[in-house]
Design a protein around this nucleic acid. Structure first.
Length: 259
DNA sequence: ATTACTACCTGACAGC
DNA sequence: TGCTGTCAGGTAGTAA
């Protein structure tokens, strides 16, 4: 579910609620969430104060004094402040002044102590134009799988890959290294624009995503191709096509995004 | 290095 | 009402 704009929105809504608060206790209701290390995690976070709320790619990072808690929401993870425990609550953090819930229907998300979370590329919102152009030049594969590869560039998922490629008018199967410098720069700008617009709308809510206050995002109302197979392209009216790339549903306009 | 396929887990929805 | 198959904002592991 959550890509960079959704995690960014959660970080922004959560920060004013939890910054400076102390974790009194962590509780786990599913053995999957902490990847088998629930006991150690409980011990290591208890009593620590939340000094910072950060995001890197799709990871939400809580800096405690001496530790960093790393939270990845998988497909259906939610971090909720002031909500009531439900059937999908997999973990909770009792803070001095409130309860932070971690709900996750499909349980693809993970909460762990940072340290192992290294092999990530630069954040998609932070990478500069020239570094991005260089990144594309050094790769042999197709552009969409590259955008989804968190080890090269992190934060972009299936929605924003499709949306950015459409805005840049680049076919998802185009060879990354054979893109002209002008097209690579256009893609960089399209990524920045897509992510910024999504953050401004509080993210995309397709089925599960809500921010830490339980509010849905509205950027799904501005999607141009994602989930719009068969509908007319907003630029030229041609029917949006859906293919499978890197095992993910991929939406594009066959006229605006020529191979 | 890159791609393909499977697996993880649960729910929604379409079709029979 | 079931049952079956497909799909879903995620990633990891293995094989080719």
């Amino acid at each position: 579910m959550p890509e960079l704009p959704e995690v960014e929105t959660i970080a922004r809504t959560l920060a004013p609620r939890i910054l400076g608060r102390r974790i009194l206790e962590a509780r786990f209701y599913s053995s999957l969430v902490a990847g088998g290390a629930a006991k150690e995690l409980r011990r290591r976070v208890a009593g620590r104060k939340i000094a910072a709320v950060r995001r890197h790619g799709k990871f939400l990072l809580l800096d405690l004094d001496g530790e960093t808690l790393s939270i990845h929401l998988g497909m259906t993870g939610r971090l909720l402040w002031g909500a009531v425990r439900g059937p999908y609550t997999r973990a909770e953090f009792l803070l001095d002044g409130g309860l932070l819930l971690y709900d996750d229907v499909r349980q693809f998300g993970r909460i762990e102590l940072a340290g192992r979370t290294a092999a990530l590329g630069p954040d998609a919102l932070a990478i500069g134009e020239s570094a991005f152009v260089d990144l594309l030049r050094t790769r042999r594969g197709r552009i969409k799988p590259l955008l989804l590869n968190q080890g090269l560039l992190c934060g972009i998922g299936n929605i924003y890959a499709d949306e950015a490629l459409f805005r840049a008018r680049i076919h998802p199967l185009a060879s990354a290294k054979r893109l002209s410098a002008a097209r690579a720069r256009r893609l960089h700008a399209a990524i920045q624009a897509s992510l910024a617009a999504a953050i401004a709308s509080g993210g995309s809510s397709i089925s599960d995503y809500v921010d830490s206050e339980g509010r849905q995002g509205t950027f799904q109302l501005q999607h141009r191709v994602y989930g719009k197979a068969g509908e007319p392209c907003p630029a030229c009216g041609t029917a949006i096509r859906r293919i499978v790339v890197a095992q993910r549903g991929t939406h594009y306009c066959p006229k605006c995004q020529r191979p």
